[in-house]
């Protein structure tokens, strides 16, 4: 474990080094929330939207706030680094050293996240307090605890999803632009912008079957009290299943990709 502790620390250093970056990125999380809030204002102000969407005005605002936050919390960014390593041959230096590349990325990712989590945690506490005081969110300590557990799993799941996406770099060139769009798309299908069950039961079912909802929507539904205990239980099982799934997928991709990488000669 020792080398990975080192990697973890390096991750922390990196995120401190690029702090302007972090604050800009945090700041930009505010925009979708603003846009969404205005949209809801409009939709709820004019029609009987509550019945249509199945969320009251306050509920949907709480959702928007928390989802914006959660999707920022689980956001990765390692795909750019992995792509660069594969394309420019930086991978070689990991191949000859006794650390596993996947684990290296994981710990570096967690390290980079750590200082952000401190700040985001404070922001989250503020937002949740705001939701409780102004928007009438009901909160129990138990739910907060389970929410935190689900967040940790969501973070892992999102890591494995994006690590798999990143490994596509073995087969595709020039993927940097695509990554940006992929992450925008995934944020939305994870329910990071608005709850996907507003589109009716069919879409809700689809979301429950797909892995993406478990990176964002699931955690939000725990803290906002929308999910009952059985749903939470099955949700955790799904989350674990998908973590395993993407873990194995990434492993397979890594093996095949590496064969290709060494065949081409980097």
């Amino acid at each position: 474990m020792k080398p990975y502790r080192c990697v973890f620390r390096m991750g922390i250093e990196k995120s401190l080094e690029y702090r302007a970056d972090f604050f800009l990125s945090l700041f930009s999380a505010v925009f979708p929330i603003i846009i969404q809030t205005f949209l809801w204002n409009y939709l709820y102000g004019n029609e009987d939207a509550a019945a249509l969407f199945g969320y009251t005005y306050n509920e949907i605002l709480i959702y928007t706030l928390l989802a914006g936050l959660v999707s920022k919390l689980v956001q990765t960014g390692l795909e750019y680094q992995v792509n660069e390593d594969i394309k420019l041959g930086g991978l070689n230096k990991y191949l000859v050293s006794p650390v596993s590349y996947g684990r290296y990325q994981l710990f570096s990712f967690l390290g980079e996240k750590a200082p952000q989590l401190v700040i985001m945690g404070a922001v989250a506490a503020g937002m949740i307090a705001f939701s409780v005081a102004v928007l009438g969110l009901e909160l129990s300590p138990m739910r907060v605890l389970i929410f935190i557990v689900s967040l940790v799993l969501a973070l892992l799941l999102n890591f494995f999803i994006f690590y798999s996406v990143a490994l596509l770099s073995f087969w595709l060139t020039d993927v940097n632009l695509m990554f940006g769009t992929v992450s925008i798309v995934l944020v939305v299908v994870s329910g990071g912008v608005f709850p996907l069950d507003i589109f009716g039961e069919k879409l809700e079912l689809l979301v429950n079957l797909l892995p993406f909802g478990y990176t964002t929507q699931f955690s939000v539904n725990i803290i906002n009290g929308r999910f009952g205990w059985t749903q939470i239980g099955s949700g955790f099982l799904c989350q674990l299943f998908w973590i395993g799934f993407f873990g194995i997928l990434a492993r397979c991709m890594w093996k095949r990709g590496l064969k290709r990488f060494t065949a081409v000669g980097g």
């Binding site: 080094e17 690029y18 302007a20 970056d21 972090f22 604050f23 800009l24 990125s25 700041f27 930009s28 999380a29 505010v30 925009f31 979708p32 846009i35 960014g77 750019y80 940006g180 925008i184």
Partner: peptide, 18 residues
Amino acid sequence: WIVSTRGITDMTAALWDF
């Protein structure tokens, strides 16, 4: 002026979405 530009990219993407 700054080395890492991930934040800028995020920011402009969010602005564009308005």
